[in-house]
Design a protein around this nucleic acid. Structure first.
Length: 204
DNA sequence: TTGTGTTTTATTGCCTCC
DNA sequence: GGAGGCAATAAAACACAA
């Protein structure tokens, strides 16, 4: 019996279902007369119930009866009010949680954009550095292959490497905020490291 | 005034716990 | 098995633009 009634309701929608329930109610002799009319609680009653809800969200029987007596309400009304109030509270909590998560998500997306931008800049710097290395390496191999003497002037290793090791030390060169750690690592990459890398690369 | 959207009060049916 | 909680929904009351 229940299933049929339920399916009946499921198959109907919106106003049709509403009218159906209204008809059923009337058929049971409800829905008419003053007693069944909805009675809105006055401000004082709501204020009192809110205070009580603030103290304790759930309602034991004793407290329910006492509240009802104090407010001149039916204990059932108090119970219903608490039930609905808990539902509203839950909805609000969900909404708050959603907006917090959304803010966090938006911040994460923004951060990701910054990081991607940073990666692009660093890649650009890397290819510039690689080009410079190639240029300098060509100079070194050319000088050593020139046979004898030389040594002085711009072709000397010391003058070339000093140029390279000092360039990265220019503060803010990468255009990246909060790059202190990176700068520290980069500054540590000194002449000796550079020489070792070259030896490794070209077997000098 | 009236149509429409929102809020509040109440009901129903199911579930859990004691 | 009864009391009480919850989700879903109805329906009355209210707010407000057109």
């Amino acid at each position: 019996m229940y299933v049929y009634m339920y399916m009946d309701d499921v198959l109907r929608t919106g106003e049709t279902r509403r009218r159906t329930r209204r008809r059923r109610k009337r058929a049971r002799g409800e829905g008419s007369g003053e007693a069944s009319k909805k009675r809105r609680l006055n401000d004082e009653q709501v204020k009192f119930l809110e205070l009580s809800f603030g103290e304790e969200r759930k309602l034991e029987t004793g407290r329910k009866v006492q509240l009802a007596a104090e407010l001149g309400l039916d204990p059932k009304q108090v119970a219903v009010w608490f039930q609905n109030r808990r539902a509203r509270h839950k909805t609000k909590q969900i909404e708050d949680e959603y907006s917090k998560l959304k803010s966090a998500h938006d911040a994460a997306v923004l951060h990701k954009c910054h990081l991607e931008n940073e990666v692009l800049k660093l890649k650009e710097r890397l290819s510039e550095a690689e080009a410079e290395i190639r240029k300098l390496t060509a100079g070194i191999t050319g000088a050593s292959g020139g046979g004898g003497g030389g040594g002085g002037g711009s072709s000397s290793p010391s003058s070339s490497f000093s140029t390279v090791t000092h360039r990265p030390l220019v503060n803010g060169e990468f255009g990246v905020e909060g790059e202190t750690d990176f700068m520290y690592i980069y500054n540590d990459y000194t002449y000796n490291n550079y020489m070792m890398d070259l030896v490794g690369l070209y077997g000098m």
